[in-house]
Simulated scan of single mutants.
Amino acid sequence: MSRPDRAPSDHPQIATPRIGVLIANLGTPDATDYWSMRRYLSEFLSDKRVIDYPAWKWQPLLQGIILSKRPFTSGANYRLIWNNEANESPMMTITKRQVAALSAEAQRRWGDQVMVDFCMRYGNPSTPDVVERMVKAGCQRIVFLPLYPQYAGATTATANDQFFRALMTQKWQPAARTVPAYFDREDYIDALANSVTQALGGRIPQRLVASYHGMPKRYLMEGDPYHCQCQKTSRLLQARLGWPDGVIDTTFQSVFGTEEWLRPYTVQHVAELAKQGVTDIAVISPAFAADCIETLEEIQGEIREAYEHAGGKDFTYIPCLNDNPDHIAMLANLIGENLSGWI
């Protein structure tokens, strides 16, 4: 902290200028009890980017029936995967490791002039709180990186929205850049392919199911590019692995509500594969940058059970890229490109 040159003695001190890199992920409840889960779910499911029904129609249903019951079931599911030692969700644990690795890489590449931190769209640490912290630390420029390889209004866009709202509260607003989706980057596809090869020991399963988080089909018809970007990621992954056509299937999980979502649904698809005599499948989640409730509980619980109940035998879950060195190197490259002209 110092005063500007030629400033009077009563001028407030100003932090040394730095560049901030703010990593953003979806979020996590603070704990698994009813009220922690209710706060988290209320914030998440009240987001108009996620559920775009009119508030007069949706909020009474959400605050009444849904949030009276769902916090209990969601809390029970989180308890199955909770990191009890750190008293936090696996997503929080993994995100901290990712940021620590990226901070070390940023220090190696750019020294002290770049500060790396993270925020969550829902829950803590909140985007406004972290933006405030970065501004106080001297970040006059911020690169905002939503950890979503494929763009969706309900993920990338709402994270950006919250970042922009946080900037609105700053007296001295930093310059800002948002990082676009990276679903077709060569180094991202390479990292996915390497994770598949390592997890499977080089063998090719009868089927690799690329399971992406779902969304209402209506969003696709209204112009959201998510479905197309997921399909392209799967195609590029197949080409990079050099596998024949028909080995990789693209599916969608985590269906919510009554309207039709993107198909095929993962839980139904793996059961159908088993009924068709497919006895060896692997499942990967290319839309998730860190393992979370949807991968650790839904895929390895509900989806695995559906496959085995229908007669399937070998089920291999391929972890998310997490803090894998290939993933960290790819993200550092992506950050470096978006720092161009600033550093």
Rank of each mutant, 00 (worst) to 15 (best):
S2G: 04
S2I: 00
S2F: 03
R3A: 07
R3H: 13
R3L: 08
R3M: 06
R3D: 05
P4R: 04
P4L: 10
D5G: 00
D5I: 01
D5M: 01
D5F: 00
D5C: 00
D5K: 12
D5E: 14
R6E: 11
R6V: 03
R6K: 08
R6G: 05
A7Q: 09
P8K: 11
P8T: 12
P8A: 10
P8G: 08
P8I: 04
P8E: 08
P8H: 10
S9I: 04
S9E: 09
S9H: 01
S9M: 06
D10K: 02
D10Q: 08
D10Y: 13
D10N: 14
H11L: 06
H11C: 15
H11E: 08
H11K: 06
H11D: 03
H11R: 11
P12W: 15
P12C: 13
Q13W: 05
Q13E: 12
Q13K: 15
Q13S: 04
I14N: 01
I14T: 05
I14L: 13
I14D: 04
A15W: 04
A15N: 07
A15I: 06
A15E: 11
T16R: 13
T16S: 09
T16L: 15
T16G: 00
P17C: 10
P17W: 15
P17Y: 13
P17R: 09
P17V: 07
R18Q: 04
R18L: 05
R18T: 03
I19N: 09
I19M: 02
I19W: 01
G20N: 10
G20C: 08
G20K: 12
G20D: 08
V21Y: 08
V21K: 07
V21P: 13
V21L: 06
V21W: 11
L22S: 07
L22P: 03
L22K: 01
I23C: 14
I23Q: 03
I23G: 02
A24R: 04
A24E: 12
A24P: 01
A24W: 02
N25Q: 11
L26K: 00
L26N: 01
L26E: 00
G27L: 10
G27M: 11
T28Q: 08
T28L: 03
T28N: 12
T28W: 02
T28K: 03
T28D: 04
P29V: 07
P29E: 15
P29C: 10
P29M: 09
P29Y: 12
D30E: 15
D30S: 14
D30L: 13
D30I: 13
A31W: 06
A31S: 15
A31C: 02
A31K: 13
T32H: 02
T32R: 10
T32N: 03
D33N: 15
D33R: 07
D33A: 14
D33W: 08
D33C: 11
D33G: 13
D33T: 15
Y34P: 09
Y34D: 09
Y34Q: 01
Y34H: 14
Y34V: 09
